[in-house]
Design a binder for these strands. Structure first.
Lengths: 237, 237
DNA sequence: GCCCACTACGTACGGTGTACGTAACTAGGA
DNA sequence: TCCTAGTTACGTACACCGTACGTAGTGGGC
C-alpha cells in the first residue's frame, strides 16, 4: 500500500490542520482573503503564488503548504466570494427569493470582476457553495418539484447570470481601457461593423443593430432575462 | 496627429493584408487552424506563442505580425470553432431549429473542450459569430418578437449551454485524470460530502443527493434544460 | 526524551509573453 | 526606373511564472 499519489485530492477533503508539527501561521481564510485582495486590486493575472505570498507576508514556497496547486488557490477564492452571499429567511415566494439571489450574484460579480473567469467548474462543493445551495433549495421549498429540477434551475440561473455579467464586464472593460475617446472607439467599431453589415450578407443583424440605437438599459435587460428564466420553471412547476 | 496607440484595436477591424511589403506566409485561417490543433491535442495550456509558431513552422516572433497579443490568438480560435457550425435552411419551426443549434453547440464544445474556458467575452462579432447569429435570427423569423428579445434568447441559450457543458466536462475530467479507480474516488467524495452532509446542517442538499442515486442521464438533462428555456420564450412570445 | 511529521523558505529550472533590433523584401510614388 | 518606406521574418533578451527539491527548525505523540 504505497503512499497515495501526490496531488489530486479535492482541497476541501484535506484537513486544514493535522495536529502534528508547528502550528500553521495562517488559516485558509487568511489565504483566500489575501488572494481575493490581490485579484480585486490587480486583476486575476496579478494572482501569482509570489504576489499572494507577499500580500500574506510569507515566502513564496510556504504557500504550498496550504495550497498544493495554484488551481486550488482559485478554488479558495471562489469559495470566499461565495461566502459574501447574504442569506435570509425564505419568504415563501420562491420567485422573489430566486430573483434576489440572482441579483446578489450579479452584484458580487461586479465587485469581483475576475469571478466570471473562474466559474468554469461551477460548484465543486466547497463549504460556501454548500451553504449557498442549501439556501437556494430552502427558497425553492414552495415549488413543488423534485430536487433534481431545483438544482437544474439554480444551475441555469447561475449559467445565465455568469454569461450575462461576463458580457457586461467585457463591454465595460472595452470602453474603459481605451486610449482613445469613447467616440473614436465607437467610430472604429461602427466603421468595421457597419462596413460588414452594409454588405447585405447579414440583413437581420443589421436590422437588430438599427433597432436599438442609444445606450442599452443593462439593469432592465438583466431583470427581463431573470423573469424569462423563472417563467420557464413556473409554467411546468 | 501622432501614430495611433499601439495595440488595442479589435483584430477583425485590422485588415489581413495591407498591400505593402512581402506577402505574408500564412493566412489568419492557417494560424487559427494551427492553434486549434495545438489546443485539441495538448489542452488550452499548451497554446503558447512558441508552440503555435512551431506547429505553423515559423519563428515565435513572426506570429506577432499576425496576432498582436495572445488574447487575439484566442479570438481567432473561437472564431474558427464557430465556423464549424453547420447551418441550414430554417425549417419554419423555430423551437426545433434552436434546439438543433444548441445541440450542435454542445457537440462542438465536446470536440474542443477548451472552448468553455474562452467563452467569457462571448461574441466579439468575429466573422463566424456574425454568420452564426444571422442564422439564429433567421431561424427565429417565425417568432413574433423584437430583435432585442431574440438576441436575448440566443444569449441565454449560449450561456446555459456553455455552463452545462463546462460542468459536464469538469466531471468527466475529474474521473478521467484520476490515478485511483473510479470507485476509490467515489469513496473519497462520499466520505467528504457524506461527512459534511451527515452533520445535518444541509438537510436539503443531503436529500438531493440521496434522491438521485446511480449515474446521471446527461443527454436527458440537457434536453430538459433546453425545453425549459424554449418554453420561457414560447410563453410570452 | 526521542522521533518524525510538519512548517518555513531559499534556490533553481524550464517555461511563458513580448519589447526590441536587424535583415530581407516589395509595392507605390518620383 | 529606381528609391524609399512600410512590412515580414526572426533571434536575442528580460521579467515573470509555477513549482520540484533540499534544508533547517519546531513541537505533538509514543
Amino acid at each position: 500500500m504505497a503512499g497515495r499519489a501526490a496531488v489530486p485530492e479535492v482541497i476541501w477533503a484535506r484537513p486544514e490542520r493535522t495536529g502534528r508539527g508547528p502550528r500553521p501561521a495562517y488559516t485558509r481564510a487568511d489565504i483566500a482573503t489575501a488572494a481575493v485582495k490581490v485579484a480585486d486590486e490587480g486583476g486575476l493575472d496579478a494572482v501569482s503564488m509570489r504576489h499572494v505570498a507577499a500580500e500574506l507576508g510569507c515566502g513564496t514556497m510556504s504557500l504550498y503548504n496550504y495550497v498544493p496547486r495554484k488551481e486550488d488557490l482559485y478554488e479558495l477564492m471562489v469559495d470566499a466570494v461565495g461566502g459574501e452571499h447574504e442569506l435570509w429567511e425564505p419568504s415563501g415566494d420562491w420567485r422573489a427569493d430566486m430573483r434576489r439571489v440572482a441579483q446578489q450574484t450579479r452584484v458580487l460579480m461586479h465587485r469581483h470582476p475576475w469571478m466570471t473567469r473562474l466559474m468554469s467548474p461551477v460548484y465543486g462543493f466547497s463549504p460556501n457553495a454548500l451553504r449557498y445551495l442549501e439556501h437556494c433549495l430552502a427558497c425553492l421549498d414552495p415549488l413543488d418539484a423534485r430536487y433534481g429540477m431545483k438544482m437544474q434551475l439554480v444551475g441555469m440561473l447561475n449559467g445565465c447570470v455568469t454569461s450575462y455579467v461576463a458580457t457586461e464586464l467585457a463591454a465595460a472593460e472595452r470602453t474603459r481601457s481605451l486610449p482613445w475617446s469613447a467616440e473614436e472607439e465607437s467610430a472604429v467599431r461602427v466603421a468595421y461593423l457597419g462596413g460588414v453589415l452594409a454588405g447585405g450578407a447579414y440583413p437581420r443583424m443589421a436590422a437588430a443593430f438599427t433597432e436599438t440605437s442609444g445606450p442599452i438599459d443593462l439593469d432592465g435587460a438583466f431583470e427581463s432575462m431573470l423573469e424569462r428564466m423563472l417563467d420557464a420553471f413556473a409554467q411546468r412547476g
